[in-house]
Amino acid sequence: MNGLTAPPCCPPLTRREARREERREAILDVATQSFLEHGYAGTTMSGIAAALGGSKGTLWNYYASKELLFSDVLERATREFREQLSLALNPDEPVEVALHSFCSRYLERLTLPEGIALHRLVMGEVVRFPEVGRIFYERAPLGVQRLLSEFLDQAMERGDLRRADPFDAAQFLTALCMARSHVKMLAGVIPVLEASQAEADARAALEVFLRAYA
């Protein structure tokens, strides 16, 4: 192989590690359902342990607090989302094409029933539990805006976009994506977002953005 040594692969999980990981996933499944149905205040570690059929002590071996559990629930919920958006932001495509793909996928995920439910959960609990808002902001909006900011910075370096603060630009584009239908869905004015309307929202957001930065 031309004298090259293949990089070592990650060792497979032991049976014990695999069981522990399966248990953690089960905890996150139950916790996600509880947070969405009962809110942050209405979810208790005791209730989650009971739903899992184990002891509270066992649950605490995985998560020392409800705050840490909520953080992991959000991390799991947003990890795949960020990965999908990263693929959409392909630097080898024309900037307009990549940004349109980003806007479409961003809106699609935000307006899923679970996305709307999560947003309502956070907005309803943040006054009593400020940590809920902080965790949500760091895991969801901030993570996405940082990802988008890196892409915009590179596009500005290439001269594809006007040079400006890329993080500000990322905040503006994500806000434009949410400006029309997302607010109505949060308020219950419209129950679902039709594909044609989602496409119209994505194109409108990108058009306004490019007027400022192209």
Results as ranks from 00 to 15, higher is better:
Met1Tyr: 02
Leu4Arg: 15
Thr5Tyr: 01
Thr5Pro: 00
Ala6Tyr: 09
Pro8Val: 13
Cys10Trp: 01
Pro12Met: 07
Pro12His: 05
Leu13Thr: 01
Thr14Ala: 12
Arg15His: 14
Glu17Pro: 00
Glu22Asp: 12
Glu22Tyr: 03
Ala26Gly: 14
Asp29Asn: 10
Val30Ala: 13
Thr32Val: 03
Ser34Cys: 15
Ser34Asp: 12
Phe35Thr: 09
Glu37His: 06
Gly39Gln: 09
Gly39Val: 02
Gly39Ala: 05
Gly42Gln: 04
Gly42Leu: 02
Thr43Trp: 03
Thr44Pro: 10
Thr44Trp: 08
Met45Glu: 10
Ser46Leu: 13
Ala49Thr: 07
Ala50Gln: 14
Ala51Tyr: 05
Gly53Lys: 11
Lys56Ile: 04
Thr58Lys: 13
Trp60Leu: 15
Ser65Phe: 13
Lys66Phe: 04
Leu68Ile: 10
Leu69Glu: 08
Leu69Ala: 12
Phe70Tyr: 15
Val73Glu: 06
Leu74Lys: 01
Thr78Met: 11
Arg79Glu: 14
Glu80Tyr: 08
Phe81Val: 11
Glu83Thr: 13
Glu83Tyr: 06
Leu85Glu: 06
Ala88Phe: 02
Leu89Asp: 00
Asp92Phe: 00
Glu93Asp: 09
Val95Glu: 06
Val97Tyr: 04
Val97Asp: 09
Val97Thr: 14
Ala98Ser: 15
His100Val: 01
Cys103Met: 12
Cys103Gln: 09
Cys103Asn: 09
Arg105Gly: 13
Arg105Val: 00
Leu107Cys: 07
Arg109His: 11
Arg109Glu: 10
Arg109Cys: 03
Leu110Gln: 09
Thr111His: 05
Thr111Phe: 01
Leu112Pro: 00
Glu114Ser: 11
Gly115Thr: 03
Gly115Tyr: 03
Ala117His: 08
Ala117Asp: 13
Leu118Trp: 08
Leu118Tyr: 01
His119Asp: 11
His119Gln: 12
Leu121Asp: 02
Val122Trp: 06
Gly124Cys: 06
Glu125Leu: 07
Glu125Lys: 06
Val126Ser: 01
Val127Thr: 12
Val127Pro: 05
Arg128Leu: 15
Glu131Phe: 08
Glu131Arg: 12
Gly133Ala: 07
Gly133Pro: 10
Phe136Trp: 15
Tyr137His: 13
Tyr137Lys: 12
Pro141Asn: 15
Pro141Asp: 14
Gln145His: 08
Phe151Asp: 08
Gln154Tyr: 08
Ala155Ser: 11
Met156Ala: 07
Met156Cys: 04
Leu161His: 04
Arg162Thr: 14
Arg163Asp: 14
Ala164Trp: 03
Ala164Val: 12
Asp165His: 08
Pro166Cys: 02
Phe167Ser: 03
Asp168Lys: 15
Asp168Cys: 14
Asp168Gln: 11
Asp168Thr: 15
Asp168Trp: 11
Ala169Gln: 10
Gln171Ile: 14
Phe172Met: 14
Thr174Arg: 01
Thr174Ile: 00
Leu176Ser: 09
Leu176Ile: 06
Cys177Lys: 01
Cys177Met: 02
Met178Cys: 04
Ala179Tyr: 11
Ala179Thr: 07
Arg180Thr: 14
Ser181Pro: 03
Ser181Tyr: 02
Leu186Asn: 13
Ala187Glu: 15
Val189Cys: 05
Pro191Phe: 09
Leu193Pro: 06
Leu193Asn: 07
Ala195Lys: 08
Ala195Phe: 03
Ser196Ala: 15
Ala202Met: 03
Ala204Ile: 00
Ala204Val: 00
Glu207Tyr: 09
Arg211His: 11
Ala212His: 07
